[in-house]
């Protein structure tokens, strides 16, 4: 019963995040929603890994690990862009931007 509970909570998390990624106005909320989308899928994969007959299947765990790497890279990429978009000036001037066009761009999300 427990795997089914985990899997259905994974589906629920995925559905909520999918709704938010399209409806949230704020960039940061969208990025968090994108993370939750991945989290929902990983929850389902981990639930799937339990096989009643053969114990634990390692393949879904490997998939989750790979998925986490992809998800972290995508999040890093999105955060870097969001930072440039919002023109946050808290930086120590080391993020490689030329600084000319990233200070005046105001805006809350695409």
């Amino acid at each position: 019963m427990t795997p089914l509970l985990y899997a259905s909570s994974g589906v629920a998390v995925f559905a909520i995040a999918l709704y938010r990624i399209f409806t949230a106005g704020d960039v940061l909320r969208k990025i968090i929603a994108a993370n939750l989308l991945g989290g929902g899928v990983f929850l389902i994969l981990v639930a799937i890994a339990r096989r009643p007959a053969a114990g634990i299947d390692p393949v879904p765990h490997a998939l989750v690990l790979t998925g986490i790497v992809v998800s972290v890279s995508a999040t890093a990429c999105a955060l870097a862009l969001a930072r440039r978009l919002e023109g946050t000036t808290l930086d120590d001037g080391d993020d490689g931007d030329d600084g000319s066009d990233d200070t005046e761009v105001a805006g809350r999300g695409p």
Binding site: F14, L18, I21, F22, V27, K30, I31, A34, L37, G38, V41, A74, C77, A78, L81, A82, R84, L85, D102, V105, G107, P110
Partner: peptide, 18 residues
């Protein structure tokens, strides 16, 4: 350009996660 890139990413991500 950063805005266009972020929008691209935020539409492509749900696609690949589906």
């Amino acid at each position: 350009a950063p805005r266009a890139a972020l929008r691209y990413l935020l539409f492509a991500l749900p696609g690949s996660l589906l």
